[in-house]
Nucleic acid binder design. Sequence first.
DNA 1: AGCCGATTACTCGTAGACGAGTATACGCCG
DNA 2: CGGCGTATACTCGTCTACGAGTAATCGGCT
Lengths: 221, 221
Amino acid sequence: MAKRRKVGNLLALALLSLLSQQPMYPYEMAQTLKARGKDNSIKINWGSLYTVVQNLEKYGFIEVDSTEREGRQPERTTYRITEAGQAELRDWMRDLLSVPGEEASGFAAALSEAGGMHPDEIVELLTTRLTRLDAVNAAEQAGLKALAERLPRLFLIESEYQLAMRIAEAGWVRGLISEIVTGTLSGVDAWRKFRDTGEVPDVLRHLLDEEAKGRWDEAGM
Amino acid sequence: MAKRRKVGNLLALALLSLLSQQPMYPYEMAQTLKARGKDNSIKINWGSLYTVVQNLEKYGFIEVDSTEREGRQPERTTYRITEAGQAELRDWMRDLLSVPGEEASGFAAALSEAGGMHPDEIVELLTTRLTRLDAVNAAEQAGLKALAERLPRLFLIESEYQLAMRIAEAGWVRGLISEIVTGTLSGVDAWRKFRDTGEVPDVLRHLLDEEAKGRWDEAGM
DNA sequence: AGCCGATTACTCGTAGACGAGTATACGCCG
DNA sequence: CGGCGTATACTCGTCTACGAGTAATCGGCT
């Protein structure tokens, strides 16, 4: 599951999908993606675009359909998808849809280092995040509503998904803030003391000892 | 906000955080991260490790503390964090915690291409995802519970976060499946028809026309 | 008629990510 | 006490991502 792809960039997925509908040349692909608003979910990078197209060709997922020049413009190479490309697209989609996980989040990484900062500062930062999340979500919700009048929702599920996730995140952050503030989160008291006075809590000393003996992984997480 | 970092790899964040506690040599950093179970949230890659350390040094965030050799082993270079490094760590943390978004998800990308597959297949795949999500979540929940008995929750927030997000995702997926099955999701009927009979729905034809004229972005999403 | 800015379409160079490979030392089993 | 598996500590080379730069054409305005 979630196996390594020969061409792993998500932009490649979008391109394969595009070419499965009709042949195109690279620049046209980028334009079409932009026109369809896909540049929200996938960043279109000129550098990547041509590398990805090249690699897709290298591995036989797409092939040259024709090359022509209009006037004296630089040559336009039109590509079409191959059988192998169709298969790859299909397989990749199945994989992405059916296998959860894998995404590394900066926020999660930062959370796991949060012990290095003062609780009050964390609360302040999280509050800022929450405000921004709420703002973005409200805007997005309004945007979605507007679009929903002209488009079947089918075309908007991916935005709905992202919105749902961000709403969930907002909820979680709200909860965390209140847990830190009220002290419900076990460990904050010692943490705050440590950050304020420099006094190393027993728990921490304990943990460091255990770590030295490499006992952490025993719980099998 | 969310500005470009001189050293952008999340591994660098972990390393800075580690070195802000005490000087270490690269291999030791990797060991410590593993011992602390951080290899769940951040993948530790030998190749990346040394590149990142090198870059951190290049930009003055860390500096050589000492180099020694025990016996005839390869030289061990111990690094310590600099003032600039402390500042970078702090600033980066503030950024990661207070600014939401930015994470590109493969699932979202796949969702936005879902129109290219048959609804029944999508439902099948989503159901698989749901099963897996539920399984992973149950396991994680159990694991967390076990750990919570020995560790203050403070050390587990990042796992709690990831769990919360995956639970939210499961909920959303469950909803989507039922919306597709029952046909509540506007557009599925036409979609299914199209996939079954090849008959191009009016809506789609309409959209393609508009796209040609570049009207998509007007809603300002 | 001709100039300017936007659009089209790509090229190239660099920096980063990553994995496979390497080389030494240490423990321990027979 | 010799050999071998494992842990230690990196090195190297490839492949990918990306952004800045380029060069031609087109439309419109003076």
